[in-house]
Nucleic acid binder design. Structure first.
Lengths: 339, 339
DNA sequence: TTGTACGCGTTATCAG
DNA sequence: CTGATAACGCGTACAA
């Protein structure tokens, strides 16, 4: 068992409250007593019981994080940023996954709430998912910050990337490279992908190229089949068709890497036959076949700013705050796959 | 504010303890009362305050996880497995990073302990890091399971991969492909890499090839310089030398991917000029240049088993347990880089 | 079958 | 400057 305030009090012939105050440097305690208590505490390796502190104070110094998945590069980097920033702010974080299921998302929020978090960082799975639960949380004085999916309906701070402009830039780059028939590969039901599609469309329109819905291919992950398979099925007929693309714009990390792998398998020469560019945060972009040109999201920064904004809200309890939506700039890194 | 036991009690003209018992299905409460209470609780969305429960019961239903880093594929997958398994066991997890610093590792353990975790899952940074703190934890009845780094000195369950055999297999594969001059690229001070080196050596010895220390190149990350740079510096002279390698065995995920990228930059044709194989859990192995042959660790499984073993220890409080060290089989996936 | 009293470890209030 | 007391929300002997 570990030593408690009471133990110290008994040993030193003081009261528990005096010890408590001494340890928290209260002005009402004499320097002498403070020294005595602190030395004893240090010597016996006393650590206050957080649980009891939490119960008493109503705060937990913990922020909850709910994300769709944790095993992809973007999210791993995001988490890294969140971790770093919360350490700096002396917050602990509890991480839960929603696995892209609203039921799990709701459950995760509920679990975190029961645990007594001081704030929530959420990568929501859809545009108004868990809205009721989130509003309840806010009503209970627990602030929420939305990360990545800035299109979510909740009224609060939101931090994401400028998906529109990132996609616009990438598409424009392909156009500047002389590509005429650019396909857009994306996934169904992923919120951020809509902005990316708009960016793609905007670049085409600006170049005077009519937007052709047939050039937009949306992978449906809800089928339960692997993304790899689905992309293959989508790409095969394309290669044989009269309207064979000369460039592919891939809207997500996974699609981008997989597409590159599939094209390599098919011995399609990238970028000579087909150029490829996409959103990706893989640290291996250089080692891909060929080195991948990519729109890179500032994932770590996103996590850090998310924590920062949450911190603001947690400090400014009850004050009226003007909520903002922050769109961080993406970075277009040109390597070989798009040249 | 949220509704408490007392509120329900007052509203229903019962005592708090009756309500508490009713909700936990105590045999001493009448079916009638139970129904009444439960319905009221459900209707008013009552959730017991975990903090209070924890304080009372001394358990928190939380397991702490401390790992070196969270932004690499292996760890992300490991975390995913841990998450999955702890959800199944109705445990929440708190994740902290040690960033490969023993001071941070100790601190993380301390923070988790103060938070009142029921068990700890640790990927230790060195062979006897934080041993004192871990022993204290165990002495306080909080079990610890070591993950990945099974060479750690603590007496407890340990779950890792069979690094020796994985490396042995990979090296043997290179030998079977006729490679004569296989170099080993590794990092300094990473515990698991030692076993991998032994596996490499064993395969060479078995083939009657004398082990040559000059063929082992250890990257020193403590310099603060990037792994990319360091590998470049190591590889450049090699390529020009009389003893130019015909194969590289890379001991870690990062080294493997980076090496592939560097060789591509240098226009060294893999595997014709130099074959490459290594430990890697990247999901993009197919898309690498060329498709990467790799020793894959069962990271998710490792996480799940870690939680399982921890669960065993948490249940069997005080009982004598025979600690075991589990070495999970790796998988050798041959693609193009080693052919 | 239900209620009372107490304690988990801490902090806050108030009295001395 | 220090100490007694109450309280946070819950669970549990024990009493009724």
């Amino acid at each position: 068992m570990r030593i408690t305030l009471k133990d110290i009090a008994k040993e030193l012939n003081l009261s528990a409250s005096t010890v408590s105050k001494a340890l928290s440097d209260s002005y009402e305690i004499s320097a002498e007593t403070k020294k005595l208590v602190k030395e004893y505490a240090a010597k016996h390796n006393f650590r206050p019981n957080k649980i009891a502190q939490n119960l008493k104070t109503g705060r937990s110094n913990t922020i909850g994080v709910v994300m769709c998945s944790i095993s992809n590069n973007f999210v791993a980097q995001l988490l890294d940023g969140i971790q770093t920033a919360s350490e700096a702010g002396h917050y602990d974080i509890i991480i839960m996954q929603s696995r892209n299921l609203e039921s799990l998302e709701k459950q995760a929020i509920e679990v975190l709430r029961m645990r007594g978090i001081d704030g929530l960082l959420l990568v929501p799975m859809a545009s108004n998912s868990s809205e009721k639960e989130l509003k309840e949380l806010q009503a209970a004085g627990i602030p929420v910050v939305i990360v990545d999916r800035t299109f979510h309906s909740l009224d609060t701070h939101k931090v994401g990337a400028n998906n529109f402009y990132g996609a616009y830039q990438a598409t424009k780059h392909l156009l500047e490279r002389g590509k005429k028939n650019i396909y857009h590969l994306t996934v169904k039901g992923l919120g951020v992908s809509e902005e990316r599609l708009k960016g793609y469309n905007a670049a085409l329109e600006e170049a005077g190229i009519p937007v052709n819905p047939a050039q937009v291919i949306a992978i449906d992950q809800s089928t339960g089949r692997s993304v790899e398979e689905l992309i293959k099925e989508a790409i095969h007929p394309l290669l044989a068709s009269a309207t064979r693309p000369d460039a592919l714009f891939c809207a997500t990390d996974e699609i981008t890497s997989r597409t590159l792998g599939i094209l390599a398998d098919l011995a399609v020469v990238v970028p000579q036959e087909i150029a490829v560019i996409g959103f990706s945060n893989t640290p291996n972009a250089n080692a891909l076949n060929p080195a991948l040109s990519a729109v890179v999201q500032p994932a770590r920064l996103m996590g850090e700013i998310g924590v920062l904004k949450l911190n603001e809200l947690m400090k400014s309890k009850n004050k009226e705050v003007e909520f903002e939506t922050i769109a961080l700039a993406t970075e277009l890194v040109i390597r070989k796959s798009s040249l």
